[in-house]
Every structure is written in C-alpha cells, then in structure tokens.
Design a protein around this nucleic acid. Structure first.
Lengths: 223, 223
DNA sequence: CGAAGGGCATTTGGATCCAATAAAGAAAAG
DNA sequence: CTTTTCTTTATTGGATCCAAATGCCCTTCG
C-alpha cells in the first residue's frame, strides 16, 4: 500500500459541485429570497458554464429542499410557511437531542476541546462585533460536531439535511441580541453535559435549546 | 377558476422519472444486489433512452442512498453493513414512534378504517400464500399511512427516506414465518392504539415493533 | 523473470443542438 | 369593450458529440 496518490485533493472540482455550492450560498445568504425564479440559462451565463451542470445542480438543490422544480416552468426558491418551519424544528429536536445523548456517551477528549473552542469564539464575537454571519457559521459548526460525535452517520445525515434548510429560515432571526445570551448559555451547558458524559443532561439541554429557537420563529415569522 | 385543465394526469411521464423508478425497483427486488456495477451506457441501452436521463436518475438514486457514485469510475449498488443497518433502524424507531404518537392524536376515522383494511389483508395473505412481495408492499403502505396521519410532512419525508433504503436490506428477512405472527400482532395493537387516540400506547408499540425488526437483522446479516 | 512506464479502452463530465410544452400576448369576432 | 382562440416566446427535457480522467494491459528494459 505504499502508493502515493500524488495529492488527490487537487482533483479539479467538478463544475456541477461548484455551481451547487455557489447557488446554495446565495440562497442561504438571502441574495435570492423565496419565490425568486432561477432559470437554467441565467445561471449558466452567470457562472460561464453550459446548462448541463446547472441542471444537475438545480436537481440536487431541489432534492435537498432548497428550491422547487415546477415541471416545465422553472425553479423557484422554496418559501417556508411558519407551520413548516415549526415542523422542521420539531423533528430537529427529536434527532439532535438523541444525538446529544449519544455524543455524551461516545465523545472523545479532543471533540470536547473543539466544542469549547467554538463556544469561546462565539462569545468573543457576540461581545465585540456581533457579526451575524460569523456567529451563524460557528453555531452550525457546533451542531455539526455534536452530530458527528454521536457516531451515528444515519442520524447525522438526517439531522444535517434539516439544519441546512432550517438556516434558510432563521439565519437572521436566531441571533438577535436578546436571544444571544440564552443561546450562548445553552451551548455552554450542552458542552458541559457532553464533557461529563451525562446523556440525559445533554439531550435535555439540546431539546430545550432547539425549542427556544423554535419559539423565536413565532415572533419573527408572520404567515 | 373555471378552467378545466383537461386531465393533466396524462402529462407524459418524464423518462428520467421512469428510469429512476425502474432501477429503484430492480434494486429493491434484489435483481441488482450490492456491489453491482451500473454503467450509464448499459442502462441507456436497456431502457432505450439516451444517457442524459439515465445520468439524472443515477444521481437521484445516489442522493437517496441507493447507490454510490465513484467519481470517475461508475455507480455501484450500495452495500450496507450490519452496523449501518442497525443505525437506520435506530433512527427509524425515533422518527416513527413520534409519528405514531402524533397519528394517534390527529388521525381521521377514514384513516383508521384503511389501516384495519391493510392489516386484514396482510393476515389473509400470510395465512394463505405467504407471498413475501405482497406482504412487503402492504407493510410499507401501513407505515406510510401512519406517517401521513401524523400530519407532519417533514417527519414523514425524513422517515420515508430511511424506510426506503431499509427495504433494500430487509425485504426477505422480516417476513420469515417465525416473525410473521409477531409482526401481525404488533400491527393490530398499533392500529388499536391509534384508534383509541392513545399517544403513549401508539408510540410505545411502534418503538417495540421496530426494535423487534431490527433485532431480526442481527441473526440474518453476517458482516 | 520481474518491475516500471506508456498507451489504450472504458466511463463519466460538460457543451451544444433539437423537441416539446406551457404561458403570455395579440388579433379577431361577438 | 370583452372574450376566445391562435400564435409566438420562454424554458425545460432529451439526444448526441466531445473532452478528460482513470484503470488496465502490454511492452520493454534491467
């Protein structure tokens, strides 16, 4: 097994993946809000590629729940109603609280250290600039890491799917100054529970944490 | 709103959907077992279509967890290890027991009647012929209907995804004669609980039902 | 006889071309 | 002036063509 694959990292990124990532980024950033029409030709021109990879990227985005493909009409960014958003958070609560419990049992020392590092960074940013994109990014990393630590890839993938589409909804609602203190406190308790390998504590805090976030939606979303 | 859309049901099925459905069918039926190589050209020839819709179908199958796309090599039917299979059942247990509880609260009378009808049919078939494909089909319908009755589409979709790939694993393991009686009894209790709108009963039976199925895997799968 | 290197075949990824369809707009009739 | 129908246009779906990459086999050299 002594073959050196000569940096397969450099394996030129497929353009379909690039387009997928870019469009996804734009949707998450809110550049293209709900109901925005995304035509294959427009995107192809914008990214200087042919329609083929754009089509593949759009289908993947649709399968991941970010957009909706109208049979022979076009693709629109999927609008979520308040009811749908709440549903998503309910299921997340179920999956992520289970993951938190498993993570408490199975986490490594290194993972605990990384979790603390992320929490520290979030607190530093919240105190200084309060930059929402940076906070959102770190928050996502924290949740991902806990899912990873559960050592259950099926659970991880199921929850990730929901977290991603959830971020379309909540990026700018969850990080209001009033909710921030609570979020940071939740994170700290969560990490302590995982460090202490207390499954019930960890899953309970996660359940409460997500329920709080879910509740914040009710005041910010109208439909 | 008086426009009659003139039977849009007849809107000629897209070939990509047809190919997706057919290949999926073959995988579920076991015609193409784990590790089978599926090349675009082979499928294109077999279904008399070009490679374009085949490619789209394969990507969708990959995103749904049925196959694995090796970057520039080909697509192979995904093999599940015992550990993965158990993971899938663990998450299913979580999601479907929640769904059963919600279904108990929200089910309509009509849904209860349909559930009983399915259970009756399964018992009849089990007693007479014991046809595995028919039983599997009905079993799947029963689970789908309960998910539907939960009135939570996010929960429904998350669970469905897992049920589908689960069926790649278990179609021929879950319906051995020894386990059949237990399965049928579980179903009947489940429906009674849902009819009685007893959430705790319903979710408990579902949890036990899936755990039993999960356990059967251990004796039939080897890795 | 063994190992290494290069060429060839297989297979996917991307571009372009053509067909089908649905919506919108224009024109004609009542 | 309104309504209906026909035509045009915008946009996706499918087919074909070309490029790139990967793995395998054969050849050649040590």
């Amino acid at each position: 097994m002594g073959n050196a694959p000569k940096e397969r990292r450099t394996a030129k990124e497929r353009t379909v993946d690039r387009v997928y990532a870019e469009v996804r980024e734009q949707i998450l950033a809110g550049t293209w809000g709900p109901e925005s029409r995304l035509t294959e030709e427009m995107l192809a021109e914008r990214y200087n590629v042919s329609r083929t990879p754009v089509r593949a990227a759009l289908h993947k985005l649709a399968s991941d729940g970010f957009i909706e493909m109208i049979p022979r009409a076009g693709a629109v960014v999927r609008a979520r109603t308040l009811a749908e958003a709440i549903e998503i958070y309910d299921v997340r609560s179920l999956l992520e609280s289970e993951a938190a419990g498993l993570a408490a049992r199975r986490r490594s020392e290194e993972e605990v250290a990384t979790l603390y590092k992320i929490a520290d960074e979030m607190e530093a940013i919240a105190e200084k600039s309060g930059q929402v994109p940076a906070l959102s990014q770190l928050n996502q990393e924290l949740h991902h890491l806990i899912l990873r630590a559960s050592r259950n890839r099926t659970l991880e993938e199921s929850a990730l799917r929901l977290i991603d589409i959830g971020f379309v909804i909540n990026t700018y609602t969850n990080f209001r100054r009033t909710d921030m203190a609570r979020t940071l406190a939740d994170h700290r308790a969560l990490i302590q529970a995982i460090e202490a390998q207390d499954e019930i504590w960890a899953s309970s805090v996660m359940r409460a944490h997500i329920a709080t976030t879910r509740n914040a939606l009710k005041s910010t979303m109208r439909p």
